[in-house]
């Protein structure tokens, strides 16, 4: 199989969407935080916690969807911690976020070791199985690529539509955007800036948690150390790439998934001549290039990273 024909295999496109799914959740989550004016660098750790919490729930005998809910709650909990520290208390969002990442991931590892002290190979669970959408999955090409995914992938797409609708069409979405652009004006409109910001960070972090859980409950069937592997940081880059819009962020995540799926196949094809590490670097390099391309004209939410203190100017 050569470099071009790979592009026309359904397996490639199906893999692209699978790889994009956790990024879609995480990118949406980060987008929600940043639209409200809070950068959440706890994302990498929150995804780790989500991956662990979801997995341990299922491992303990509960259902897969219970795992997803627990992952979302665990993510929300660390989101709440981040939000309380940076919104009402106004701490540095960078430092707090890194602190949340370190705390969340080390707690996940601690509890993993506590639950399974002696294991060398991580125990497996029965993950989500692909679910063929009746009718649509019989379509040629598109059916196999798009409509034979696991339920969490469909949920990711639903969440994109939901967040896009929330931001564009609802008063709550307007409030979120307002506190991210001009909190003083929002306050004058009667919006509780602190509450809206905290709410957005908590909800966004819940999405990040589900993104992490996708890895343990859908993509793989066990939890292992460092499994998030920079996906959180890539999502932060994807938010910028997607100009803080859910639709564009989805396109970014899909492009990224496509690229990653493609390099995995190229790796098998050219692996003998080109060191595999170069292929593994590509996603990170691509993220940086994407950032350079869009950053100059990026329209950051104007109050991003600016703490808001009531009554101060």
């Amino acid at each position: 199989m050569d470099v071009i024909t790979i592009l026309f295999t359904t397996a490639l496109w199906a893999a692209a969407i699978r790889i994009a799914s956790p990024l879609i959740f995480a990118t949406l989550g980060e987008l929600l935080c940043e639209r409200a004016g809070v950068i959440n660098l706890g994302i990498e750790g929150i995804m780790t916690v989500g991956a662990f919490a979801g997995w341990i729930t299922v491992y303990a005998g509960f259902g897969l969807w219970a795992g997803v809910v627990v992952a979302a709650l665990a993510g929300a909990l660390f989101g709440l911690l981040h939000a309380v520290l940076v919104v009402p208390l106004g701490l540095s969002q960078h430092v707090t976020g890194i602190g949340i990442t370190l705390l969340a991931s080390s707690l996940a590892y601690y509890f993993y070791r506590l639950a399974l002290p002696e294991v060398t190979s991580p125990p497996k669970i029965e993950p989500f199985q692909p679910w063929a959408v009746p009718g649509l999955s019989d379509l040629p090409f598109v059916g196999e690529a798009l409509f034979r995914q696991t339920p969490l992938t469909y949920l990711a797409f639903v969440m994109v539509a939901l967040v896009a609708w929330l931001l564009a069409r609802t008063p709550l979405g307007l409030a979120i955007k307002a506190v991210g652009e001009n909190p003083a004006a929002a306050e004058a409109q009667g919006i509780n800036v602190i509450a809206v910001r905290i709410g957005a960070v908590v909800a966004g972090s819940a999405l990040m948690g589900v993104g992490g859980a996708f890895l343990t409950l859908s993509a793989f069937n066990s939890f292992f150390f460092d499994m998030i592997n920079g996906r959180g940081w890539i999502s932060v880059a994807l938010v910028v790439f997607g100009s803080w819009r859910p639709g564009k962020a989805l396109v970014g995540a899909l492009l990224f998934g496509l690229f990653d799926a493609y390099q995995l196949r190229l790796q098998q094809w050219a692996g003998a001549v080109v060191p595999y590490q170069l292929f593994l670097m590509l996603p990170y390099v691509l993220s940086i290039i994407a950032l350079i391309l869009v950053s100059r004209r990026a329209a950051y939410p104007r109050a991003l990273m600016v703490p808001y203190h009531k009554g101060e100017r």
């Binding site: 960078h94 670097m281 940086i288």
Partner: peptide, 24 residues
């Protein structure tokens, strides 16, 4: 340089550099 020239947030780039350099 990416920060001062293109306005790229250095948090993300330096974080991504960690992964790239470890692979190198």
């Amino acid at each position: 340089l990416m920060k001062t020239r293109f306005g790229v947030d250095e948090v993300v780039t330096t974080l991504l550099f960690n992964f790239i350099f470890l692979l190198l």
